[in-house]
Amino acid sequence: MTPLLLSLLALADVTFSAFRDAAGRNPRIEKERYYRRAMAGGFACGLGALGVCWGALRGLLALVNDPEVLYRDMAGAGGWMLGLYGSYATVVLGALGVWLLGGSELRTLMSVSILGPLTLLRHGLIPVGLALAWWQADRWETRGLALLGVMLVGSAEQAYGAIRARRRGRLWPGEPEDMASP
């Protein structure tokens, strides 16, 4: 269960990273389609990253003599990551839900007190989760897998930035030319 839930969290995070990357780059009024396409792109990137992680997990379990022991070690370390990242995601998704359904004052409250600050906190939280997993793990394979997963998820925005730089500043379909960086 732990790998599955961590995968879902990772997928959500990479998808929202794409939303953040797309936000503020399209000044049109109607841009639901633009955001949907960006998030679909993020989702696809997330699936790719998960594919790499699951491939590494299966490979490691196939290579060792004691796969059950290794899996238990991974599940234990992953449980700590899940506790931290899951708590963060619960707060963010809860605030997002209130923002989507609430009136203007509630929306402002959610944005100012939760959504904005937690966006900043995310950058610090990712390595903390990794540190917890490393501290909890007994095996180097577990630590390596945690590092791989965190690097793939945590670097999603940088990856979008790198692709953007190669595409003359535009990444998501529908971005106006004015938004291209020099």
Partner: peptide, 29 residues
């Protein structure tokens, strides 16, 4: 940036500002 890129910078800055205004519902307000 040097002169010539300032206008593009202004457009990008205002697009970012618009994103903030969208979040804070300035149109609705």
């Amino acid at each position: 940036p040097e002169r010539g890129e300032i206008d593009r910078l202004f457009v990008r800055v205002h697009a970012e500002m618009q994103r903030l205004w969208e979040e804070f519902l300035q149109g609705e307000r």
